[in-house]
Design a protein around this nucleic acid. Sequence first.
DNA 1: CATGAATGAGCTTTCATTCAT
DNA 2: GATGAATGAAAGCTCATTCAT
Lengths: 234, 234, 234, 234
Amino acid sequence: MPTVTWSRLGGERRAAVVAAAEAEFAEHGFSRGSLNVIARRAGVAKGSLFQYFADKRDLYAHITDVGSQRVRSYMEDQIRVLDPGRPFFEFLTDLLDVWVAYFAEHPRERALHAASSFEVDTDARVSVRAVVHRHYLEVLRPLVHDARERGDLRADADVDALLSLLLMLLPHLALAPYVRGMDPVLGLDEMSAEQPALVVRRYVAVLAAAFGRSALSAPQTLPTGNLGGEHAYD
Amino acid sequence: MPTVTWSRLGGERRAAVVAAAEAEFAEHGFSRGSLNVIARRAGVAKGSLFQYFADKRDLYAHITDVGSQRVRSYMEDQIRVLDPGRPFFEFLTDLLDVWVAYFAEHPRERALHAASSFEVDTDARVSVRAVVHRHYLEVLRPLVHDARERGDLRADADVDALLSLLLMLLPHLALAPYVRGMDPVLGLDEMSAEQPALVVRRYVAVLAAAFGRSALSAPQTLPTGNLGGEHAYD
Amino acid sequence: MPTVTWSRLGGERRAAVVAAAEAEFAEHGFSRGSLNVIARRAGVAKGSLFQYFADKRDLYAHITDVGSQRVRSYMEDQIRVLDPGRPFFEFLTDLLDVWVAYFAEHPRERALHAASSFEVDTDARVSVRAVVHRHYLEVLRPLVHDARERGDLRADADVDALLSLLLMLLPHLALAPYVRGMDPVLGLDEMSAEQPALVVRRYVAVLAAAFGRSALSAPQTLPTGNLGGEHAYD
Amino acid sequence: MPTVTWSRLGGERRAAVVAAAEAEFAEHGFSRGSLNVIARRAGVAKGSLFQYFADKRDLYAHITDVGSQRVRSYMEDQIRVLDPGRPFFEFLTDLLDVWVAYFAEHPRERALHAASSFEVDTDARVSVRAVVHRHYLEVLRPLVHDARERGDLRADADVDALLSLLLMLLPHLALAPYVRGMDPVLGLDEMSAEQPALVVRRYVAVLAAAFGRSALSAPQTLPTGNLGGEHAYD
DNA sequence: CATGAATGAGCTTTCATTCAT
DNA sequence: GATGAATGAAAGCTCATTCAT
């Protein structure tokens, strides 16, 4: 946790440190990220960093926390806009589209997300992933539960298995388009504009078939024709 | 790629280098793994490593390749034993059980797998994951295709989506039981002996519901009662 | 020397600073002791330390002074109890026993003593040793002079040589039982309960032979039989 | 222990490293001595030091070892010159004169000796003192034993107590003339040319009285009149 | 008189790679 | 083909002291 010194710090200095640290950790991850570089870029003395944070890991945790909250806030806003009361898989499709678009447009957010996913240092990775997972679940769990309440999910649907899969799919969708080789099957990493939207629909189709109210509601054909338009599942 | 010098090398020396490098990379990953240590443990001169491999990454790639092939060979043997001609999701359950057991019993293999999954160095990670993914797919694709041919998969099943999900599930099942926080929903990291088998069945149930021949074949209840015994899906 | 600000300070605050500084310097010595830590433990601002003392060394000198005075007071009390009018070497034996016991029972005192003895920083060490030596001498010199007056010392005894040796023996006896390798001959550092008492008697025997009234009074055998009991020298 | 690399090293490079390290450690002791400075002064890369020595302490131990052996060799030569077969306390007086003179003329040797005596780092100090003490004892013990055999010591002399005192007196005589406050009684630190010789005689007189063959042989007057000339004890 | 934020030089150790032998 | 000495940048972190508030 940041020190009290950090909490009393002027906004400008704080912003400089956060920006420098985000950039560095996004670029090189925790283990490879350099405090020297962060201090230099932020225009503060190296020692000052240790007045604000207990150590490197503390700084990293803070940066990740801030970043996660930013993403979460954005997504929660979007969730309201997209109307979570709609048929679940239709809503989920839109949500994932937004998710993909957000990371497409925010390279630094994406880099931070990647850095935390691939961190070698087990403790650093574990503690950061814990934060990220918590945010994910606090947002997703109510959505999924409401969907089941509403009857959008099959009565015996394994809700936790759904959440578990979403926890794998979300980072995958955010990062795969920018990391060569991460998705050698569906080709998310082949840069074509509609690729991600298509993949989103294929994944959602799977989830709908597995967890949706009735097997009959599963799409008979891939909905490639109306990307971003109306949805077939309801 | 290893140099010609490496290919002309005596088997003993080669084995020593491979063993030392595997141990080191398993323990510390690529970025943190030390060539100093590898050379010392292998009993060869530091300079010799550079006669055999272009650089550190080249050595790492080779080690991963060798490791992947070892895992693949083992799994291919097991596939024959398990009879791939059986009903697909029943077979898949057994296969994943074997997979989980293999990594449970081979900590170094698991460590190498983890090291490659969490490598910070993007290029190193990408090239290594490419190799691993290739092995995965060369084994899984025929299995899945045969299953569809046999009619174990629904006619319109999105085979590539299935493969894509398996590519996420396999590393997850191998590592999550040993990496705190990797699975905060299904609790793979809570050490209880049946946990992995149970989770395997939950994931397979999802896949069966999504890709299986008929929605009717989806399990009505979680098959927790017959872990490792007979299977309900066919 | 402490500033006037220090002298005007409330007793509680002063005590907190002294306690924190003693603990820190006892643990790590002057060079390694940290003002940061002292300020934190004392619950005062780092800057305040510089309002009370000119610099680190000034604080250290003060702490040593306070500590020395505490030891001196204790020893002066004991001297009265032990009756300094008794035959000198008998009295000295008891005195050294008390001395050894005091440091055995007061680890912090011992640590402070050790810290000042082994300080690398020459100036710090010199000024601190000067204080300690002054205390030693102000206590010992009257004792030794009285002994000569009474005739317990040989008429031509080199009193200053005796004091000089005592100045070496006192720290040695206090510390050697706790510092490996400090006494490789008499084995003070081999932890056995009677060891120090035995060594005290051997040293006193030497001093008695060298400075005692008559050569005839020198012990013919080592007085190992009556540790802590009656004494042979008089 | 130095590495094999060190043992294979060219004499010039080795000499440069040793010289630089001696100078630095003499000046600042182990804890404060800087490897940065040593490498720079020696004209070698910082990393090279770690090819030659396991770590800082290893280098320090080597430097101290070399230094101790140098002093020991010199003293052993002098012992032969001074004729150890002479009456012991006469011989000892000359020996201590030589000892004092050696450190007077070799400031770096003296500084190294001081550095090892006052080192804060317990482990470093202990291991170094162990080496020094070993050298001391290997030289002194035979001399003292021969003296007793010859009858120069009283039959019941506590030989180990004598050695123990010599182990305190030797560093004291070497360093006290150059360290203010180290000897506030006999005034070794007051720079006057005959002072050390005088003090040597006072200490020897004490030892002679305590351990010499007969109390009658103890000097009746301090032999201040013939410093460096003939000796009164025999 | 008290505070505590800021400083930046300083520390030891590790590392992949080069290249003369 | 094998060797291993040499390199020097880079790392995270600590510290006594200053000084504006």
